[in-house]
Write a protein that binds this DNA or RNA. Structure first.
Lengths: 205, 205
DNA sequence: ATTTGCTGAATGAACGTTCATTCTTTGGCA
DNA sequence: TGCCAAAGAATGAACGTTCATTCAGCAAAT
């Protein structure tokens, strides 16, 4: 009786509100966007907004938590794929090329700046990054046919590099005329790295 | 009578103030740092601060202009070096490894976020990036022994990639335990790219 | 006495947050 | 069906705070 749908209505509404808040933050920044801005973006009054989130910083926390959840979802899909390394390649390519139309890059830039400024946010994003890297090395282990632990010791830095590249691409200035060439070059680098890892089992074993 | 020294005293004082403003922005962000914070950091009253900069946004603009000037200075030094590509390698390595003790990375993160948000700042940083890329391709042309124009058409994207990597490294979370390995890997990638460019003349010509 | 360099209180706008109030929906009773 | 209270959603003015910016005034130097 508790819930019929796996996502309760209140949470669904919260997700919609969160999405509009993300847009407001992308437009004006975490500090720059006022509660009035955020509420207007969500199509409601400020007062009503506080019925969903108790404070402005709670929105930021919820936003980061949502991104983390989406990331977990992405990796779950990749690991369930018959060819995980191929699925990873495609996911990365999608993230890099579409870049979610400047929205994601903007938010990531805001979070990156906030991470270096506020230790609490920095810790959260560091945890998120470490989690992603752990997923990546797991996939690497699968692709290279080695134990998870070995993949971790050998390719943790490579995983971090890939994360860094994807983030950096998303944060590129959209008006930069060279962006298309650049993303192609980055994608080539990443594919090269993935190839090296996938074929390294032959060299080692 | 106007000025004796090429750097007038007022400008020197302005530079000191700008440096403390940079620290304030690094601690609290562009929007988060108040004029009171900035003035206190500079060891003076708010009122006096306005004698040096007419507004808060003027500080940001001056900060970006200063970074641009420093960048120009760096490239002038590199180009004057007997072996420019070696000098470039060392400059990049210095920028990446020391990362100016989290101060520069913090400010770059702030600027990156602001660039995606405010078109005026975005244009300024894009101009700066294009300028850096132009300098890089000039050095590439020297190293590979080809014309500037050819270097430009062939390696503009590579130059952008290097800029992206240096920035991304500086913006890494300082508490990340993997950072040392990561920067080593990035440096290896950059050196590989520079090697490819330097030896490509043999392939082409 | 006048200029200069500087202070920090004053100012009005805008901020995050609260809350008294008003709409909208609901559900039992006729 | 129509009606009416009770509950839930939503509003926007108001509050205290903080912001960027200004300026009357002070102390030393000329």
């Amino acid at each position: 009786m508790a819930v019929v749908s796996p996502v309760p209505l209140a949470d669904q509404r919260s997700a919609e509100i969160l999405d509009s808040a993300r847009r407001a933050f992308a437009e004006k920044g975490f500090d720059g966007a006022s509660m009035q801005d955020i509420a207007r973006q969500a199509g409601m009054s400020v007062g009503n907004f506080y019925r969903y989130f108790p404070s402005k910083s709670a929105i930021v926390e919820a936003l980061i938590a949502l991104d983390m959840a989406e990331m977990e979802q992405d990796f779950a899909t990749i690991l369930a794929h018959p060819n995980p390394i191929l699925a990873l390649r495609e996911t990365i390519e999608r993230k890099i090329t579409e870049a979610d139309c400047q929205g994601d890059g903007q938010i990531w830039a805001e979070i990156t700046a906030a991470s270096l400024r506020k230790p609490e946010i920095g810790d959260a994003t560091l945890r998120m990054e470490v989690g992603i890297v752990a997923h990546l090395t797991t996939i690497f282990a699968l692709a290279a046919g080695v134990a998870k632990e070995e993949a971790q010791t050998r390719w943790t830095a490579h995983a971090h590099l890939i994360v860094m590249l994807v983030k950096a691409c998303a944060m590129q200035h959209p008006d930069n005329p060279i962006t298309a060439d650049l993303t192609r070059l980055v994608m080539r680098n990443i594919n090269q790295t993935l190839d090296d890892i996938a074929t390294s089992a032959a060299l080692k074993g």
